[in-house]
Design a protein around this nucleic acid. Structure first.
Length: 721
RNA sequence: GCGGUCGUGGCGAAAUGGCAGACGCGCAAGACUUAGGAUCUUGUCCCGAAAGGGGUGGGGGUUCAAGUCCCUCCGGCCGCACCA
């Protein structure tokens, strides 16, 4: 049986400074590059003028303050970066979630993060570029695309093509490449000023929903292709460059944001969807019936969407389209520590991979690997290392100075862990086949999106190039809940509520700490720490110890060689069954409580069967391994209990001869009776009706029905006579 | 705003739709002790002397039976957040 459990503590499981680990991580990058899944692009990074350094996202707080030194002068600055094209795998990452045994909330988080929307792309010609000025074949301006300044049309994405007739204006993101081209001379000053402020705003300012929407008219007009109406083109920062085409058709009648904007700037608003009975049509964003909408008037929203999309396709001015919220993955860091990216830059050939024979490419030894003071990464200071030859043309070239993020190693450590010393391949295919995929992955919910999405992406790429044989890396995923401080707040140094495990171990031992963490409550639940709780499980372990060991530190004389009696067997097998099933389901808290019940039940016995106590130790072992192992040895065993067979339970010992049943009259517990196990339903019915207390209650009533739940309850359904 | 999740004693929590509060903490009383912050025993949801009654965030519903299923409202936590 393969039971591989992993937790996200990978830097302890893998030697991250191992040159071979560098080699294969870089090798995977090369495969990504070869497949066109790694590309360079200008992307903004946080720059702190005070530190004179690039900051990581987590080093900038919500107000745009540098968390290192508290500098206020942090802003976005575009930088050449390596990007991985995770969006090319968006559909597979979404679809294959169905193959996984993960909790629904985590799957849902990934689905939201990937954010698939189905709708349509529609091309809006610009005024002054009539039909025919674009593509000669279609007779329509098709040269419409987000960043193409040769456009004579604007392309938008919408999930509501059925509201096209209500599109009364258009909005471009301030960064949209068409802005400069479109803007009329008299609007240029206003537009330039708006664009300048927008780029200096922090993301937080821009996405603050509480703030009023702002924007500027460009002076240009577009034509709504469904009704040939002339509509103004605006720019506004509520439209994001990073999603869709960076441009929208605004339908103020049926989009909350567009409505807000239209009201602020007195733009026309048209109602094109009739809301259902009792709801206001203005601002209605749900499904209704199309009105004032030409060929789709009278159709319910879903059908209207279909029909208008088909019409757009026929006219070659639009088509069905899918958009994802998922963005490509910014993969480079301006840090020293990290795997160097195995690329050289040649003036003639551009970015080129180094030869595979040169792997691993290690970091150069540097006296000073602090930031350079400009946006260049620290490696830019390693002059000798930097100089190299172009792989393609042999001419002079420079090494890439960005390094990989920590995510790189964490994306495939679970594979390398199975074959950590392999120098000729990332992993031996035989080992991969034997072990993969990971049966159980335990980690915090903080990895729900980033790590678990990145690792799945790499895994799928490795699948495509034949390195792994499974579509997904982690079959079952469980998120352990966070343990809060005793004040029910997140543990943090600043709150001073951090519980140090070393202190706990020194005071109570590792088994007590471990046992308490499992006993606190369900694994996946957030729960507060309580020192008194540790005390409780510590006492339990003390009780166990004293059961085996007497005051002279010798094996307790009450442990004798004898067959357990029926009562003991019942106690034992009850515990075996419960612990076995609970461990399977990761319900450690109730497994431990079953062991406590076992202890309570045998507490009053004069002597104990050795055989029974040995089985008990085996049950305890996974939960408190040190104590269990020590007692195992004290019993005279010379080998570890780790390799002993897990005890099996036998249902025959669990059968109760008698059961106490509750008698319910009209749904309320009114009496109790003891019945033997094999009593027939008829007999039970008779006994319950003859119970003196029940007889009293039944005066003036008739019993209409009797429902018997074996061994538990008898419910007498009554009515007035 | 959207998505998710959770509301049960003084506290952490149990409970295939079938006797709510298992187990542990805390508390109380007792035992053993020179002593106990060690250990053991007993008790501990609320009202009530008892008989009995009430009780799983509020309200409604389904069911012979609801902590559990459905609707609705309130509150906490987590994630995303102007995603067109």
């Amino acid at each position: 049986i393969q039971q591989v459990g992993f937790s996200y503590d990978w830097e302890r499981e893998i030697d991250t400074t191992d040159p071979h680990y560098y080699r294969w991580t870089q090798w995977i990058f090369m495969k990504l590059f070869e497949k066109g899944l790694a590309y360079e692009s200008e992307k903004p990074v946080w720059w702190c003028d005070g530190c004179k350094a690039v900051l990581a996202n987590e080093e900038v707080d919500a107000n745009g303050t540098c968390e290192r030194k508290g500098h206020k002068d942090v802003y976005r600055r575009p930088l050449r970066q390596w990007i991985l094209k995770i969006t090319a795998y968006a559909e597979r990452l979404l679809k294959d979630l169905d193959l996984l045994d993960w909790s629904e909330p985590i799957k849902e988080m990934q689905r939201n993060w990937i954010g698939k929307s189905t709708g349509a792309e529609v091309t809006f010609p610009l005024e002054g570029h009539p039909r025919g000025s674009g593509d000669p074949e279609t007779g329509y301006p098709l040269k419409a695309c987000g960043n193409d300044t040769e456009n004579d049309a604007i392309r938008v994405f919408t999930t509501r093509p059925d509201t096209l007739f209500g599109a009364t204006y258009m909005v471009l993101a301030p960064e949209h490449a068409m802005v400069a081209k479109l803007t009329t001379p008299d609007q240029k000053m206003a537009v330039d000023a708006y664009v300048a402020t927008a780029t200096h705003k922090s993301d937080l300012d821009r996405t603050d929903l509480a703030k009023d929407k702002t924007g500027v008219f460009t002076g240009a007009y577009a034509i709504n292709p469904v009704n040939d109406k002339k509509i103004p083109v605006w720019i506004a920062d509520y439209v994001l460059m990073g999603y869709g085409t960076g441009a929208i058709m605004a339908v103020p009648g049926h989009d909350t944001r567009d409505l807000e904007f239209a009201q602020a700037y007195k733009l026309p608003i048209e109602i094109v969807v009739q809301a259902p009975e009792g709801k206001e049509s203005l601002g209605f964003v749900g499904d209704g019936v199309s009105v004032n909408s030409g060929l789709i008037t009278g159709l319910p929203t879903p059908e209207a969407k279909q029909k208008i999309t088909k019409w757009l396709e026929e006219k070659k001015i639009g088509k069905e389209a899918i958009q994802y919220k998922l963005r490509d993955w910014l993969f480079s860091r301006q840090r020293y520590w990290g795997e160097p990216i195995p690329v050289v830059h040649c003036a003639k050939c551009g970015p080129v991979l180094i030869p595979e024979s040169e792997l691993p490419l290690m970091l150069p030894e540097m006296k000073d690997y602090t930031p350079t003071g400009n946006a260049e990464p620290p490696l830019a200071k390693a002059a000798d290392w930097l100089k190299c030859k172009c792989t393609k043309c042999g001419g002079p070239a420079k090494r890439e100075t960005n390094t990989m993020p920590q995510w790189a190693g964490s994306c495939w450590y679970y594979l390398r862990y199975l074959d950590p010393k392999n120098a000729t391949a990332p992993i031996d295919p035989k080992k991969e086949k034997y072990w993969m995929n990971v049966d159980l992955y335990v980690g915090g919910a903080e990895h729900a999106v980033l790590h678990l999405l990145y690792a799945r992406f790499w895994h799928k790429v490795l699948y495509d190039i034949g390195v792994v044989s499974t579509l997904e890396p982690f079959q079952k995923l469980t998120n352990q809940g966070m343990i809060l401080g005793e004040d029910s707040q997140k543990m943090s140094k600043s709150r001073g509520n951090v519980v140090n495990p070393d202190v706990m171990i020194a005071q109570y031992g590792a088994d007590s700490l471990r046992l308490y963490e499992m006993f606190m409550g369900p694994l996946e639940m957030t729960k507060p720490w309580a020192n008194s709780g540790v005390e409780g499980v510590y006492r339990f372990l003390g009780k166990v110890w004293r059961l085996f060991i007497d005051k002279e530190d010798k094996l307790h004389p009450s442990i004798v060689q004898r067959t357990p009696n029926a009562a003991e067997l019942k106690t034992l097998h009850k515990a075996i069954k419960k612990v076995t099933e609970d461990l399977e389901g990761l319900r450690f808290n109730t497994a431990i409580s079953a062991l406590m019940i076992f202890m309570n039940e045998i507490a009053s016995e004069q002597d104990h069967s050795r055989e029974m106590l040995e089985k008990f130790l085996l049950l305890l072992a996974p939960l408190a391994p040190h104590v269990a192992e020590e007692l195992w040895q004290r019993l005279g065993h010379t080998t570890t209990l780790a390799y002993e067979k897990w005890p099996a339970y036998d249902d025959q010992y669990l059968v109760e001869d008698q059961a106490e049943m509750a008698i319910l009259v009209g749904g309320k517990v009114r009496a109790k009776m003891v019945v033997s196990r094999n009593e027939s339903d008829d007999a039970i019915r008779k006994m319950s009706l003859e119970h003196p207390r029940v007889k009293e209650l039944l005066v003036g009533k008739v019993v209409k029905k009797v429902i018997i739940v074996p061994g538990r309850t008898v419910n007498l359904v009554v009515a007035d006579a």
